[in-house]
Computed example of a mutant assay.
Amino acid sequence: MRYSYVDAQPPHPGEVIRELCLEPLGLSVTAAAQALGVSRKTLSAVLNGKAGISPEMAVRLSIAFNTSSESWLTQQAQYELWHAEQHRNDLRAKKLVAA
């Protein structure tokens, strides 16, 4: 699904991981972190929205959950773009036009 800045806030990918990947499989954060080859602290930061999905994490998630790396990066980009759009009027950017 594509979001624009007027749509509802997209979920952080960590929410998606928790609700659609870990919970249905009955996985703890510790077990999932071990399977992903990352620390519990690293995975917990993602799950709690304190860290984003890096390209490396996207590949790890794609391996673990048989998904595409691109889908994880797209979710992260949509989340970040939505937040950036909320501050559009605060930016000091100006429209450029041909002379």
Rank of each mutant, 00 (worst) to 15 (best):
Y3E: 02
Y3T: 07
Y3H: 14
S4E: 13
S4L: 09
Y5I: 13
V6Q: 14
D7C: 14
D7Q: 09
A8K: 14
P10H: 01
P11I: 05
P11Y: 10
P13K: 00
G14V: 00
G14H: 00
V16P: 02
I17T: 04
E19R: 15
E19L: 14
E19Y: 10
E19T: 07
E23Q: 15
P24M: 07
L25R: 15
L25A: 14
L25S: 11
G26N: 03
L27S: 05
T30K: 13
T30Y: 08
A32K: 01
A32V: 03
A33L: 03
A33V: 03
Q34S: 09
A35V: 03
L36Y: 08
G37T: 01
S39M: 01
K41R: 12
T42P: 07
L47K: 01
L47Q: 00
K50N: 11
A51M: 04
G52Q: 05
S54H: 00
P55D: 06
P55R: 09
E56L: 10
A58F: 01
A58N: 01
A58G: 06
L61Q: 04
L61K: 04
N66Q: 15
N66T: 10
T67D: 01
S71H: 06
W72N: 01
L73C: 04
L73E: 01
T74A: 14
T74P: 05
T74C: 10
A77H: 04
A77K: 05
Q78N: 10
E80G: 06
L81F: 14
H83R: 15
A84Q: 05
E85K: 11
H87R: 14
L91T: 11
L91K: 12
R92W: 08
K94A: 10
K95D: 09
L96T: 09
L96I: 11
V97W: 13
V97N: 13
A98W: 12
